[in-house]
Design a protein around this nucleic acid. Sequence first.
RNA 1: UGGGAUGUCGUCUAAUGGUAGGACAGCAGACUCUGGAUCUGUAUGUGGGGGUUCGACUCCUCCCAUCCCAACCA
Length: 556
Amino acid sequence: MESNSKDFIRNIIEEDIRTGKYNSRVHTRFPPEPNGVMHIGHAKAILLNYNIAQEYQGIFNLRFDDTNPEKESEEFVNAIIEDIKWLGADWQDRLFFASDYFEQMYEYAVQLIKAGKAYVDSQNADEIKANRGTVTTPGTDSPFRQRSIEENLDLFQRMRKGEFADGEHVLRAKIDMASPNMLMRDPLMYRIRHTEHHRTGNKWCIYPFYDWAHGLEDSIEGITHSLCSLEFEAHRPLYNWYLEQLGIFHPTQIEFARMNLNYTVLSKRKILELVEKGIVCGWDDPRLLTLRGLRRRGVPAQAIQSFIDKVGLAKAYNVVDYALLEYSVREYLNKYAPRMMAVLDPLKVVITNYPEGETEEITAVNNPEDETAGTRILPFSRELYIERDDFMEDAPRKFFRLTPGREVRLRYAYFITCNDVIKDETGRITELHCTCDPMSRGGKSPDGRKVKATLHWVSAAHAINAEVRLYDRLITIEDTNNLPENESILDFINPDSLQIKQNCKLEMNLKNVQPSYSCQFERLGYFCVDPDSNPENLVFNRTVTLRDTWAKLKEK
RNA sequence: UGGGAUGUCGUCUAAUGGUAGGACAGCAGACUCUGGAUCUGUAUGUGGGGGUUCGACUCCUCCCAUCCCAACCA
């Protein structure tokens, strides 16, 4: 059943539309700071804002909140643009930068000073900190709090001109040093930083703080609903205060709970640590849930969208089960990924009653979920590869794949029966001798007899080699937000998160695939061609396995 | 401890005074040329105590737990 229930944000917006607030207009934005790359947690915020704009015939902006030149770079701006575009959110021509509003923000600050609502404080950082008080004790006023408007104006101008060193002065709002809300105790608006900005160069040496800047950015762009995460709840009174004092367009800030995923890191700081320490191969490592990592892994943007839909939206702290992401990926790929044959851990099979040197063409269905995907040809011959796992000499009762004396089907090809097991001197199985039933060609059962298993295979002479990279979870603990005391994320790295398989055998139809090509290897999972791949050395990433009830049984 | 928030199946999320529902995960079964997909069935939940009411996840009250705020970060 489709549910008509809406999340609390959509309820608020619908009420605003109904009552004509903002002339029933809806305008959202996503405001990343370009100091890292986007991950699946950001995808929730991006898609929330974008989808809401779509649903209510509104507008969506992409705006870089680039107010801290010490941490930000153009490199991240470009990466973020690329990732959000890939995700599917479309800001059309509305790509904005907070740094483009610096002049306007400066004017607003002057306005606040003139109104006696802001002052230049010449205490140093330690003094400001000491005078802020604690959560249970009020702060004390700065000795500079009563400076005249003229002096404040003069000092602020000179701050801009570069007459002072970093940290010598700050501009603060004059609110209430005794407020129970720490953020209202004369919050800082500007600091002096003689640092080159990636967009404004050396034009500015004063930079605005988040609380001062963010509401202005929203206001300037005419944002109606400014959606942000829960930790900004206590900032809302300040967001409102600035806009009220200035008397300018006043968006509504609404906070929601950010998404956490178990067994993963979704913190820019921790991801950066993994990248810098070389635990992963870069921001796009397929084990990372960055958007570039996900993309390289083969996760389609549509699967991320449907995952985000399923996760929902509320205000309670949450840790989503990774299995829900996997489900969303399989759900999408099952419908759209073409099926291919590939053997990751090859075991040679000789069909002893099949003529040597002969090859025939077998027809295979490209996608049983999509008739229009058509069929393709697979060469079949006397020597084949099957998956080593698909044979057991002494099989338990529930194992119904190939075993001595048993008949199984080779997908789309023949019923075969295993007659002989060939081993080397160490006892390792090197080869299986089987016979096939010519009447079962195409994998059919002319007399209606059943086989329990159908195996994937490739013709040995026609197979192409490839490297296949298998991934497992990178992190070994569920909740990476609450690490045990004195431990770092580095203490919880899964040493087996990457397994590289060489000399995998692929069906010949895969010969010319290009990076990002995605398909299902039958019975194994969904795989995607890695950017490291080239025609001489194909490289595939496993996006996700198929659901595997046998693996589950085997564990018992 | 001052202020701000949040507690519903294992997990995520609905129900705004009227049968606590859905999804994932789990379990059982059917079907199957992927042990896939699909289909069917099934167990498990309102943080706690009082109160209001014919009736409370919902309203009142007290308590408990958890998260956020004392960066010249966002």
